[in-house]
Design a protein around this nucleic acid. Sequence first.
DNA 1: ATGCGTTTATAAGGTAATCCGATGAATGTC
DNA 2: GACATTCATCGGATTACCTTATAAACGCAT
Lengths: 299, 299
Amino acid sequence: MNVSLRQLRAFVAVARTGSFTLAAESLFITQSALSGLIKELEQTLGLKVIDRSTRRIHLSDVGRNLYPLVDKILHDLDGILDEVASLKALKKGLVRVAAPQLMASTLLPEVIAAYARVHPEVTIRLVDCVVESVISRVFSGEVDFGVGPEREPNSDIAADTLFELPFMAVFPPGHRLAARPDLRWADLMGHPFISLQGQFTERLTGDLRQAVRDLTLAPTNEVAFMSTALAMVSAGLGVTVCIPYAASLVRLYRLEMRPLSDPVVARRFYVFTRDGRSLSPAAESFRAFLHAYVAEHPF
Amino acid sequence: MNVSLRQLRAFVAVARTGSFTLAAESLFITQSALSGLIKELEQTLGLKVIDRSTRRIHLSDVGRNLYPLVDKILHDLDGILDEVASLKALKKGLVRVAAPQLMASTLLPEVIAAYARVHPEVTIRLVDCVVESVISRVFSGEVDFGVGPEREPNSDIAADTLFELPFMAVFPPGHRLAARPDLRWADLMGHPFISLQGQFTERLTGDLRQAVRDLTLAPTNEVAFMSTALAMVSAGLGVTVCIPYAASLVRLYRLEMRPLSDPVVARRFYVFTRDGRSLSPAAESFRAFLHAYVAEHPF
DNA sequence: ATGCGTTTATAAGGTAATCCGATGAATGTC
DNA sequence: GACATTCATCGGATTACCTTATAAACGCAT
């Protein structure tokens, strides 16, 4: 029995209004179109569901039994379609974003606050974790997408460049480095260098050696979190480097940031998504918003 | 959002099978037709519900939420359509028939038994009542149709002739009337006449006076039920008349029936339905069966 | 009984949805 | 890189649905 939704909607509209003419109006079609829908429905079912003449309309016995059941189904379906429309219109939605701790405590809260002003009904759930967890959380589906620095390519993960920014020197106000007009990596060599554990230091060391053969970065301390590093710099225990997106945190510690050259070493940050998997409307919206925000707010 | 049932069925089939090709087979359409249905569904909804390549298929986030809800709706709808199909195929159904006591204790039980042998899943509910109630029960919708003798026409009630049969004399075996070769109404005049209350006698008296001016039927007793009349005839308290469809009851009382002429007075019996209202498949089936039964079993 | 206003049914023609068969493009495996 | 298989697209045909016009039916008033 190949009945159609249009036919069922026509039937319910007639049952509700008691008139073909009024039912047609309620469905925004002409009376003759509605008459044809009812005729085809009855032919497909093989029995009458509406007894009518030009002056009277009644549901048949079968029609009377059918009406509340079909009415409920259409009501449920319309509820589902409304739900989808709400998701599409960003009238509701949930976005889960994984990001490393530094991202999660500097850039992203700003972007999320700005986004909430535009789309208050969408919930952004920030999942802060170590850099190495970002991609695995994306892969597992635990989050909609992740934000973080470049890592080994993975065929199941798509990486979309968010920004590429250079490292900058960070030191306390009044530090001897503050007096130099143009800072070079070599200038940092005479000072205790505080770095981050893991690929941060490995990649940095590799990049420097590749650019200047005898430039060797020997961290005097390797800590897990940038906030620890900044606190130590603030305490006069050395200097560090970081990417400009963390400027807000550097200012919080009342530290100074200066560009570094010879060489300029940059890091790319990406939005990671599962390859071949679409984002929900809300996630796609926030992803695009993040890209636009970063493009509009140079650090 | 004008989605169609075909599109929703396509979506659920893909979700269930994990393949466009297998989903198309399960819906008895080609793979390209199914591909088009999914494409149109996503265009109508304005978002992706299925992420796919030539080698992989996943439901999107929205698709994953949508699937169980749509699946349930389609399951419920198919249940309803199966119900309608069962009603149409007479695999289920209830028919309520109103009939006068005499009809209800002679003809109709026979017909219902015969019908049950052909359509065991249909329930026939016999509502026995006085003649005058038959039409009002049809009118009120309390029964699907009624069976009974002619009464004043009513524009809301349609009357479809079931049979037209003549009155016959009823008397005990060995009665003086049994010796006569051809009985005439005048022959009954010399005997106590037991009649039925109400329009039975009024209509009969009117018909007889209309045919033969000085033929006056003066019942010596008027009772409510034919069974009472037959019992009294059996006890030798008089004679009566009745319509041949009640022959089984007359035999039960071991009485004899003979045709009556000068005049032949016939009564029409009808199937009464509400005008402009269709019968359910089961009711229509039983109504047709009743007509056929009566045509095939002359009394 | 007749005329009238209004409602449902039908006809003709047009558009949208759905379908088929053929084939292109993509993809994982060998 | 070749191959088998799956999804996407194209062109054409059919079906479902729609509009406008109009016929048929019907309850009411006269």
